[in-house]
Amino acid sequence: MHSVTPRGRLAMVGFLAGALVLTAPGAAFADWPPSNGTQGHTKQTASSNAGTLMSKVTYSGSVRGGGDGPAVQPVTNWTPPACWYEPRSVADFKQYVETMYEDTINTPGQANYAKAAVAQFRDIYKDGKYKDYNEKNAGDGNWWVAVQNPDRVDDPASMECSKLPFWVKNNDNPGVDQAVTPKILAEAAYNAIHLPPTKVTLAPENVTKVNLATWAWLDKAKFSEVSVTASLNVAGLNIQATTRAKPVSLRLEPGTGDAETIPASGVCTINADDSIGEPYAKGKADQDPPCGIKYLRSSGDGTFKMKATITWQIDWTGTGGAGGDLPDGTFGTTQDVTVQEIQAVNR
């Protein structure tokens, strides 16, 4: 099982601009917490670096990593969440703030305004409103902090979770739209899915003839459903969501207008056995395939760039019976196809 832990930044929006405002939580939701357990009473191990806070969300399954493999491209302008809020224990939050404070103050050449900002930030939780990070109430609640989606840290939307860390009692609704839920985990998992290669099997392979039907198919054994599970088990909040991507159709684009697709739409739908198209078999040379292309002219000394695009149907299930659909996704690749004239035989 492969898992990765993304990194997110704790929001300090407002300090560097001179605005020292602690924002209160907004309206509550009807269903909280989104789990069968309770919030709080879980011992946490602090893990932080100066200026950053590790998100506790982990991913398992067919996960992308280090640019490995293609990602699902939503067919709409839908995007995964850029940021969200997660709970932190008193010990974890305290270590984060103290580490950030010490590193900022002691860094040679650090700007005075940055030192002043981090000192004001620390003062709210150490010596100000809460006193020593609310440690006396450590068993009754947790700090909720903003983290960024590691895949969208350069997106301005990742700064929309701009509330300063705020205290939430056990099982109370944090009252922010981006509070982590199974759906948010499902959307984050969508963006982490690693797709299998999309190379289509062709017959004839790579080199075909004018007016000869080229058969195209995807073997179900090599091309099947993939999924990623995103989990969060922190500060007593234990939730997860599994996002599944299932291939449902293949679109063929010949790479030239002088060609016919089979079917005419160019879209080959999935079969009952989860394959797409049909493998060529001996004796079918004069038949039209259920999925394929017929080129009407030669590619000359070059090739045609045939594009094969898979449409993936995306859905998810999560803690407490939650679930639903997410936007379909696609991924396409091109393959070089050489088309030759059929040579006549003179007698």
Rank of each mutant, 00 (worst) to 15 (best):
G283P: 14
D286P: 03
E260D: 15
G292T: 09
G292C: 07
S265D: 12
G283E: 13
T261I: 10
D273T: 00
D286I: 07
G283F: 08
K294A: 02
D274Y: 04
I276P: 07
G283K: 10
K284N: 15
I262E: 15
T269I: 01
G266D: 07
K284W: 14
K284G: 02
C291W: 01
E278H: 02
P263L: 12
D273I: 00
G292Q: 07
Y295G: 07
A259R: 12
G277S: 01
A264I: 03
A272M: 08
D286Q: 15
D274N: 14
P290Q: 04
T269N: 13
K294E: 12
K294T: 10
Q287I: 00
I262L: 15
A272S: 13
E260M: 13
P263F: 08
P263C: 12
D286C: 06
K282Q: 15
C291G: 05
D286T: 15
D288C: 01
Q287P: 04
K284Y: 06
A259S: 11
G266H: 09
A285F: 09
K282H: 08
K294M: 08
C268E: 02
T261N: 14
K284E: 13
D274R: 06
I276H: 03
D273W: 06
T261L: 12
P289Y: 04
Q287E: 15
Q287T: 12
A272V: 01
A281F: 00
A264K: 13
Y280D: 00
N271M: 05
K282W: 05
K294D: 05
G266V: 01
P289G: 11
Y295Q: 09
P263W: 12
D258I: 00
C291D: 03
D288L: 15
D288Y: 04
C291E: 02
P290S: 09
I293L: 14
T261Q: 14
P289E: 13
I293Y: 03
K294H: 08
P290T: 03
G283W: 09
Y295R: 07
Y295A: 03
P290E: 06
N271W: 01
A272K: 10
Y280L: 03
E278P: 00
G292P: 13
D258E: 14
C291S: 03
I293P: 13
I293K: 11
A259N: 12
P290H: 05
P279S: 01
P279K: 04
Y295C: 06
D274V: 01
T269C: 01
